[in-house]
Design a binder for these strands. Structure first.
Lengths: 333, 333
DNA sequence: TTGAAAGCGCTAACAC
DNA sequence: GTGTTAGCGCTTTCAA
């Protein structure tokens, strides 16, 4: 298989046709007579030929590669999503380039020039705050892309996200359903759109229920969940239910509750948001509003590839997927 | 930047030299007179030129891309490692292709042909069982690679791994140090080399200490940690210390202990292996034998790139890094 | 030190 | 239907 790299030229010679014909047959573009097809196929098998992807890329200005760009691969949210993305991409003949990059880099011409020079066909932008400068590059660079995990903004296109607002309401309503009377929200950083939407969902739900809003601002990290929860307990407001803006903070909170011997869910019921696997690994298992990560990933690549392959038929769109309430020990009583 | 893709030809024309000279200057191969360099550089800046990576790839038979191949991206062990790998790779001018693939696929000619046709310069093989069939492909395909997270085998080359045997001993000795008298081991699947080494380390330590070995076989999964621990408790052997072959199983065990109200570490002290972040997120935090993931990743890429760029100067080697005992609540008393 | 030109392996007009 | 040929954009002999 790997002795002499065989080229299209040798296939052509061996099957007695021109390389153009072989190329046509391989790409199934325009007709080739059944007989020649047979001949070519035979030689193809015999030589175990694989077209050179790079050469093809140069000629077609296309690499059959897409990139997944994110500032933090270690986010527990991603592995599964990346897996589903890679799966779909592979099935459609694309490879996945992984780019872990901070915002600053997205601000550099070189970054985008490099993508283009590799003929990267499209990319997925996950969890990136898009400064207007970056937006400029984005529009200049002229490579299709889809945004993931961002609030669906009226002005944005090609975004796949979830219904954060509704999810937050579901969380609050669930806590009420199990009897909570004073429900606090530990929010994410105010600068993050998804965090804002979840906060708004919380506020809306609380208002509908005629409850007092109780809000503490966290930053989505485990540590912050731990610390803010401490502060919350110290504030002494008879809170009996907490909606954490993400799972990681809820997990961090568990430590504080354990240390202070607050029984969960008996005294305080809690629920997170995201649906990362971790929520099932801790004790008690944490209720959550689960995002359909796999679906998000699949949706995003599919849209991206469609954008790449039939730009004209593909309409820009904002997909907003639904979240799901998962009730576990932390809010079961 | 993205208006008209500018090529080396235009740079050449604009600076009044041949494209060969521009190419030489860009690649810093052979001398070019200072004056021409000045001229070229000026034009380069002016045009904001980036060489086309694909064209360059075709000419040099090299893509400046390496692949990370693993059967399971969602392994909590990987994100951090991948991050460090991507970081080093990027610094050296390489992009990272992520390939999540089951063993069966590695058995297919097409898989390797595809890698070659893309001129992937090298790859990292993580956590893959290498059947002899795959080994055959590996040697045929003639692309440099480095194995990660495998037991360092006398017969293998270019592997980076950790000292599983010593790590296991450290774990057992630590449990003894804090007063444990009956120490069990929940092993990994016997087919996995690292699991075997850890088991051997356990056996060796126990023997040195004149203790009775108590072994249960798990499969590295959270579930198995939970279930095997149940079985272990049921077996009623007055066990007061457990060394789990990996962290995930120890985390699963925590659930069983909680359900059965076994206080950790008071009644039973436990310790895991790997050092995944999760161990700090649960309650109690779990002691572990930490593998230097970042170092592993860095070591592996560095070796790989060296293999790619100076195959003659690079000696094959098996790197065995040291693990570290991390004492946390689960074994602190 | 520099330039001309022949590839790298494939695609896509264009002609027949 | 099929072949010829001119690229795709860059590297690299080989001469000069």
């Amino acid at each position: 298989m790997t002795k002499k790299k065989v080229t299209i030229r040798e296939i052509a010679k061996a099957s007695g046709v021109s390389i153009a014909t072989v190329s046509r047959y391989l790409n199934k573009v325009s007709y080739t007579s059944p007989e020649t097809e047979k001949k070519i196929q035979k030689v193809l098998d015999e030589f175990n030929y694989t077209p050179n992807a790079i050469a093809r890329g140069l000629a077609k200005q296309k690499s059959n590669t897409i990139a997944f760009i994110t500032p933090d691969i270690t986010n527990p949210f991603f592995p599964e999503m990346i897996k589903s993305i890679e799966h779909v991409a592979k099935k459609k003949g694309y490879s996945l380039l992984l780019i872990n990059t901070k915002e600053e880099e997205l601000n550099q011409k070189d970054f985008w020039n490099n993508l283009r020079s590799r003929y990267v066909d499209g990319f997925l932008l996950a969890q990136s705050e898009l400064t207007s400068e970056i937006q400029d590059y984005l529009s200049q660079v002229n490579i299709p892309f889809v945004k993931i995990d961002r609030a669906v903004h009226a002005k944005e296109n090609n975004t796949v996200s979830v219904n954060n607002f509704e999810g937050a309401k579901m969380a609050v309503n669930h806590l009420v359903d199990i009897g909570c009377k004073a429900i606090a929200h530990i929010s994410g950083p105010k600068t993050v759109l998804t965090a804002k939407e979840r906060l708004n969902g919380y506020l809306s739900a609380v208002e509908d229920l005629n409850l007092e809003p109780i809000i503490f601002e966290g930053d989505f990290s485990l540590e912050s969940g731990k610390n803010i929860t401490e502060a919350m307990l110290a504030s002494n407001q008879n809170i009996d239910g907490v909606f954490y803006a993400n799972d990681l903070m809820a997990i961090g909170a568990l430590k504080t509750f354990a240390k202070q011997q607050v029984p969960i869910p008996q005294e305080i019921a809690i629920i997170g948001f995201d649906g990362i696997q971790l929520t099932e690994m801790v004790n008690p298992e944490i209720s959550t509003i689960k995002q359909p990560v796999v679906e998000i990933g699949e949706n995003a690549v599919t849209q991206l590839i469609s954008l790449i392959e039939k730009p004209d038929e593909t309409i820009n769109r904002n997909v907003e997927l639904n979240v799901e309430l998962i009730v576990r020990e932390s809010s079961r009583r």
